[in-house]
Write a protein that binds this DNA or RNA. Structure first.
Lengths: 223, 223
DNA sequence: CTCCAATCTGAACAGTGTTGAGATGCCTGG
DNA sequence: CCAGGCATCTCAACACTGTTCAGATTGGAG
């Protein structure tokens, strides 16, 4: 629609769509703002009425995708919860969803997962990290994660999952069989959770996780 | 040296140095080949006698740094091995070195850790991944890692460490206290190793890690 | 000392992000 | 129904980019 019309209608999201397609085709930097504009059928400068710069467009795409991913993770957790509401099963589903996405759409994942592209004041909802945190809470509530191990546990599991996703998206590690990716992901989640659960028994005598207080980047308070 | 001379002497590594400094100042893309050339005191086209393109220069810098990092990791393992040659202590040292580097030099780390910048046929030696693998072998030899858990364990630990390093370099996670980073890194290594060691007892009945056969990207056979 | 091959320069090309002055046409208020 | 405001878009231009190539320069081999 809006073919040949002077006013486009929804240029902003049309540009985001074009940018997403271009990222998929040629990566984050393999295309120009001018090309995205041309693809939408609009002059290069038109984009500047919706985005302050090319970089802003890319960031906006990153945020849009991140929110989409958060929703996807949440849904996949819910869907996996089918029988018995096993929190560990839900976390494995989350991990599989996260990792398989980064493998199926590596170019977009490379863009999104290096969060430098995410504005600090953007309110992404639901943020993938928040989904993971909520699932860990669920695990702790179910008694499968001792209280001392719960503190900061999200950073351990997040690091492991994020690391696997990034390694795959960047092509630093490859699995011959797609099924192997699922197994590896499952193993990473299981191993990490096992390690976390066992932490309490080893913790006596060392500073414990409490002093490793961490904070996520501020993502609150939309401008 | 070579000030004002027509022939520079060692332009290739001078360009790499300039590129490294520029990456540190303004990130991977915040500078131009022309600026790097100018900084070295040479015309823009001179660079093309040493690098096929800007991208090639960046990749070369990435490889140089990766090899440097591998050497650093190896040395830090050796250094930590002081008393008793405890393999776990060595792995913790490796993790701390890896992570603290990515936090101390985040711009360069961002460039290096996303291996897309690494040519597939480059022979990086010693490659950080190989160092980690060797240390896990050492752990297994010491009997601290059951045989079935050893298989593919490097991908679990690598994912966790790499994930933490990347999250920090990208600023997706921040710790208020530098000491907290060390503790968190130690926790990630310990937790992962604990989880791995405990794997055998849980493994009965599931496919186990054997079918999750993995392979690193080919980095052998220099052109 | 001469000449070659490696090295570097200078000028040029197409394409980039970005800007500002002006054209266009949707929508609101009369 | 129609005037006109205003967001939206176009056009032309700027400085700058990566890259190429014909030619100038020079260290070192014969």
């Amino acid at each position: 629609m809006a073919k040949g019309r002077y006013h486009h209608g929804d240029l902003r999201s049309a540009l985001l769509d074009a940018a997403e397609a271009l990222v998929r085709e040629r990566g984050t930097d393999g295309w120009s703002l001018r090309e995205a504009s041309a693809r939408v059928g609009v002059s290069p400068s038109a984009a500047y009425h919706h985005f302050a710069s090319r970089d802003t467009l890319v960031r906006a795409l990153s945020e849009r995708t991140l929110a989409w991913l958060g929703e996807r993770l949440r849904q996949d957790c819910e869907h996996a919860s089918g029988q018995g509401d096993d929190p560990q099963r839900r976390l494995i589903a989350l991990g599989r969803s996260y990792v398989s996405w980064s493998l199926d759409d590596p170019a977009v994942a490379r863009l999104v997962l290096r969060g430098g592209a995410t504005a600090p004041d953007s309110a992404i909802s639901p943020h993938p990290h928040d989904v993971l945190t909520a699932e860990l809470d669920r695990l702790a509530d179910a008694g499968a994660l001792p209280e001392p191990a719960r503190e900061g546990a999200e950073f351990v599991l997040w690091a492991a999952l994020h690391g696997l996703a990034v390694l795959l998206a960047d092509g630093l590690v490859r699995f011959d069989d797609p099924r192997a990716v699922e197994l590896q992901t499952e193993r990473v989640v299981r191993t990490t959770l096992n390690g976390l659960a066992q932490e309490a028994s080893h913790a006596a005598g060392r500073p414990a996780g409490r002093s490793a207080h961490t904070e996520r980047l501020a993502r609150r308070s939309r401008g």
